[in-house]
Each structure stands twice: as structure tokens, then as C-alpha cells.
Nucleic acid binder design. Structure first.
Lengths: 194, 194
DNA sequence: GTCTATAGGCAGATAGAC
DNA sequence: GTCTATCTGCCTATAGAC
């Protein structure tokens, strides 16, 4: 009961998700197997099947937990940062943290592979991006209303642009092993709202 | 000898690259097999091994040909479009054409998977992005010099931002099956240089 | 250049004991 | 919950005939 999302006392299912998540974010969903996850946990493939009947279910659980964690982070930003510009900066920092762990955004990675994924996973990926866009749209509209964020056109479209820019910056920074590449893109993105 | 890049009289190796390219751009490098390519060609897996000893060599050939074709397109833009802004628009159109074929940029896709790829492929991906950045940097510097493109900071950094934005816009537009999502991002990108 | 046949390995998955 | 054992299928790759 008192288990946290990635705590050291987490159950096997949660620890399996931790291992699978790291693999999916670095190698892609088609780049890891039950054997990889089981080895990372120190159990057998058969035991892993007890917790997740198939790879599709594991993948769905992966996206669900990731989306919930992201939603929690956004709620925390709402609580702690009243200013629209601070919220946007904190949002970018979320991505920077993921990249700092040498990982791609889980849903950005899965977006690349979406044609090979079970429909349930593809749907969940869309919902992740929709939720991000909705939150960002609110932030941008708020910033425009109080004059702290300046941009042209539809706020929802601007929100899409923010997400795309950050995902693209992560995608390319990774093979270069260059964090500063991401930060330069992030700075330019923020400057665009001045 | 008189074979074109994707002509109907192309040899088996070229046609194999055509099929493999489409698969890699839609499913990723870990999302297709020799069996898929061979089936698409109407030959056996063993025959495909005659042309490409292993999947690594096939992958290298894929990136090489893609990079050369891209370089050719950039050279054509240089020839046909003297104005910096027109060049930038034509560059964006290159990406739009790829996405219009329901494909991801080959090197954007491979960038996501790079941790699972042979080192030779990872190196070739970096060279692709370097070449694009170099070309774009020249375009941006030219536009800034003659006053037709306006942007802040280092031109090379701005070029990186352009590539990242376009790759990210493609990545996310695909699962939505929404071309307009890409075009909206492209328009915002261009407007940013006004 | 293409084929049949085959090798060896790993994939996802299940049955059934403990 | 975790194990051993096993299944089926697909993977990359090779040998050798045509």
C-alpha cells in the first residue's frame, strides 16, 4: 500500500515497469524483450508474464503510469508556479530532466514506432499528447491574457508547436550526446514568447 | 548504368533499398526484417543476402542513399532558388513531401533507435544532420546578410532549431494522421524568421 | 542472381510444479 | 509469485545447387 512510484520497496510489477520504461525510452518498444526486463529484475520471463500477460499489456501500463506521473508533475507546476512564464520554463525542465537521464520522452519514442504498436498503445499515446497540449494551451492563454507571454495565432496551435519543438530537440540531441543542444533549442523556444 | 534512384528498371539492390527504406521510415529499423523486404521484392531472404551481407550493411546503404538524395535536393534548391526565404521554404517542403508519403524522416526515425544500431549507422546519422545543419546555416546567414531573414543568435544554432522543429513536428503529426499539424508548425517556424 | 534447405538463436507465450 | 521446461514462430545468416 505504502508503495511509491519508483520507491525501493515497490512491488515486482512496479519494478518491472521501471526496468521496461528505461529500456523503452532508450531502445524503443521494439528494441527490448521480456528477457531483457526479466534479467534486469533478476526473475524469469515466466514470472514476468504473471504480472503482465503480454507485451501489449506491459506497454499499456508503461504509458498509463508515465502519463499519470506527467499529469502529476503538471499539477505540481500549477500549484507551485503562478506565473505563466515560470510554468512554461518548468514544463521545459520536465523534458530536460528526462533527457538528462539519457532517455527519450517515452511517448515521443513510441510515436516513432506507432505503426508497429497495438492499437491500445497508439490510442494512449495520442491521449498523452492531447493532455499536454490542453495543459500548455491553458498556460499560454493565461500568459497572453496577463501580458507575460507574447505569441501569434491560436494558443492550441502554439502549444502543439512547443511540444513538437521539445520532442524534436530531444530526438536529435540524444545521438549527439549533447545536452547543450537541447538547452539551446529550449532557450530559443522561450525567447520566441517574448 | 542508366539506372535512376527509384526508376522502374532499377536493379534488385536499388529496389531492395526502396522497399527497406519505406519499411524503415514507417516501422523503424527494428520494426522490419529481411523477410519483409524479400517479400516486398518477390525474392527470397537468401537472395537478399547476396546484395546485402547483413542488416547492418543494408542499413548503412539506406542512410548513404538517403543522404545523397537529400544533398542532391539541397543542391537543386541552391540552383533554382536564389532567395534565402525561398530556400528555407523549399527545405521545409522537403520534409512535408516525406510526411505526405506517410513516412517519418529516415534519419529522424533512426535517431530514436540509435542506441540499438551498429556504430557505422549511428555515425552516418550524425553526418546527415551535420550536413543539413551546414547547408541551413549558410541559408540563414545569407538571409540575415541581405535582410530577408531575421533571427537572433548564432546561425548554426538557429539551423539546429529548424531541423529539430521539423523532425519533432513530423514525429507527432504521424500518429495523429494529420498533415495540417505539420504545416501549422512549419508556418510558425517560418513566421519566426520575419 | 536466385533458389532450397537448414542452422542456431531469440522472440513472445504457456503448462504445471513448488 | 516464482520457478523449470517447453512450444511455436520468426529472426539473421550460411551452404550449396541451379
Amino acid at each position: 500500500m505504502a508503495e511509491t512510484q519508483q520507491g525501493r520497496d515497490a512491488g515486482t510489477a512496479q519494478r518491472a515497469l521501471d526496468v521496461a520504461e528505461a529500456l523503452a525510452q532508450t531502445r524503443g518498444f521494439n528494441g527490448f524483450s521480456y528477457a531483457h526486463v526479466a534479467a534486469g529484475l533478476g526473475i524469469t520471463k515466466a514470472s514476468l508474464h504473471y504480472h503482465f500477460p503480454g507485451k501489449a499489456e506491459l506497454g499499456e501500463a508503461l504509458i498509463t503510469r508515465y502519463s499519470e506521473r506527467f499529469a502529476g508533475a503538471l499539477a505540481r507546476i500549477d500549484d507551485e508556479r503562478p506565473a505563466a512564464r515560470d510554468r512554461l520554463e518548468a514544463y521545459i525542465e520536465l523534458y530536460a530532466d528526462v533527457l538528462n537521464g539519457r532517455r527519450m520522452c517515452l511517448c515521443g519514442m513510441l510515436a516513432a514506432e506507432y505503426e508497429t504498436l497495438p492499437a491500445s498503445m497508439a490510442d494512449a499515446i495520442i491521449r498523452f499528447f492531447d493532455a499536454n497540449q490542453a495543459w500548455l494551451t491553458g498556460v499560454l492563454e493565461g500568459g497572453r491574457a496577463d501580458g507575460t507571454l507574447s505569441f501569434t495565432g491560436d494558443a492550441g496551435e502554439a502549444a502543439q508547436a512547443v511540444i513538437g519543438t521539445l520532442e524534436g530537440a530531444m530526438l536529435i540531441a540524444r545521438p549527439y550526446h549533447d545536452l547543450s543542444r537541447f538547452h539551446a533549442a529550449a532557450r530559443r523556444l522561450l525567447d520566441g514568447f517574448t
